[in-house]
Amino acid sequence: MSVQDGYNFAYLDEQTKRMIRRALLKAVAIPGYQVPFGSREMPLPYGWGTGGIQVTASLIGADDVLKVIDQGADDTTNAVNIRSFFRKVTGVATTEQTREATLIQTRHRIPETPLAAGQILVFQVPIPEPLRWLEPREAETRTMHALREYGVMHVKLYEDIARHGRIATTYDYPVIVNDHYLMRPSPIPKFDNPKLHRNPALMLFGAGREKRVYAVPPYTDVRSLDFDDHPFAIERWEQPCALCAATDSYLDEIILDDAGNRMFVCSDTEYCAGRQAAGHKGALAA
């Protein structure tokens, strides 16, 4: 184990980690409730996942196996940087395999491979407050949460339907957690919303700039807002993944050339690669 000299294990000092863990315990105790915490300066700018990194740093132990994804991919700049950061400051094992990981930090996706009890998923959150767009005062949004005054949230969905004929919100789609708190699930596609519901894994959310953490404990009810006559529905694609032929995963559209040719492939690179290795072949697979 080769931890960077001069730094505490996982970069943050033990008191800070303890403070964050206390906030997380509170968050787990009150599912969906935003708990303030003393967010620290991190060696990354805000917007690069400082909230998620602090949550991960406060939890990670020497035995953990860490996976980091960004938009479903293990190999983007953000994912690679965060992974190498933790390798440097903890020396823990890292993986791309969802099943092998004990701790997964994610930006904008939930892995396609079902999570298991005991796993922890850490989300990077840019804006935690779902009511902020209509109410700029923090004291007022806190009261609204306390009293479950969420009717106004439907105003936003109403606007969607009035303008687009359907609920056009496709990511960061608001949910009600445990029949009480309204929560932003971070900018995951609404395709992932059903995975929040009664998930066996512990899901933690960290917002560094906004200094908030919140949680969805294992097996918690998570319901997406909708109207009776415009029920919540996830995205569907007319074709399977061009590489692994999956029909049950979230697909990214990739432009192939200037002639407008395109392909649809799994956004979850690990899931796609795993299927291809198991012999599944899409139309454009090499």
């Binding site: 009717g151 439907h154 105003v155 606007e159 109207f227 006559d229």
Partner: peptide
Amino acid sequence: RMRVSAGANIGERLMAVGDRHYGDI
């Protein structure tokens, strides 16, 4: 709410008391 539609402005109170049918609202 100056930036949401007239319909949503009128419908807001209905949604606040629990109306969940877009067409009715």
